[in-house]
Amino acid sequence: MTPIHLHIANKSYPAAGANPPHQAIANFSLRLQPGEFVCLVGPSGCGKTTLLNILAGLDSDYQGSIQASPAAHPPKIGYVFQNPRLLPWRTVQENLELAQPTPDLRAIDALLAAMQLSAFRHTYPERLSLGMSRRVAIIRAFAANPDLLLMDEPFVSLDAPTARQVRELLLSLWQQRPHNVLFVTHDLREAIALADRLVFTSAAPMQIVSEIPVTLPRNQRHLNEKIEVFRQHLLTEHASIKNLL
């Protein structure tokens, strides 16, 4: 694991049809410490997914740099997209093996067991529920053994109990295998439950408004009332973030 420093000086989209040119990100600098879980919280359409796509190497049309120090090469990425993006014609196990640089069945066995999916290793994704598919997508990101794990609202469109279950499984997995995580969400309660640090961003062009460490002990993160108290405390202490939610 290495610290990762990213600086996006400018990311703009040119005019397209009736849409004028649009600056998505401006002067955005963030440093991720090894094994740190960072949640990016900001208004809808502010450029969070654009930032993740830049980090994942899916968008190279920007001004700035991404560095995994001390290595010179760009960081290896695991990306949990908003929809699971599993290959429907490959089984769960095959989907996981493909994400690994060299196939490692023992690692896959352990990850499947941690996410309670061992019984579904030979199942095709179309036969899984949405919650299970999202768990497979999370496993895939871990299976790639990345330097940086990106998560773009991975629990969106899940019902509350399923989202909570998957969140707890994710947290347990991350605590066993700590990676640098950049997690995008709209949900402040979810962010408090997961993060070491919250990064609040403005509307487009996206900039950092505030960075707040989550001081709530990890052994209390499963308690809704503790999360709610911490949330209220944040909203009282940092009035500026109210408008971003």
């Binding site: 899916l58 290896k76 990425i77 695991g78 990306y79 993006r85 290959l87 493909l98 640089p101 790639a144």
Partner: peptide, 24 residues
Amino acid sequence: KDLLEMAHCYQFGARKTLIHVIWP
């Protein structure tokens, strides 16, 4: 496009992308 992006992100490379993403 989503699957092609996923393949790029997980560094499938040309051969794996052709066999497992494009061909099916």
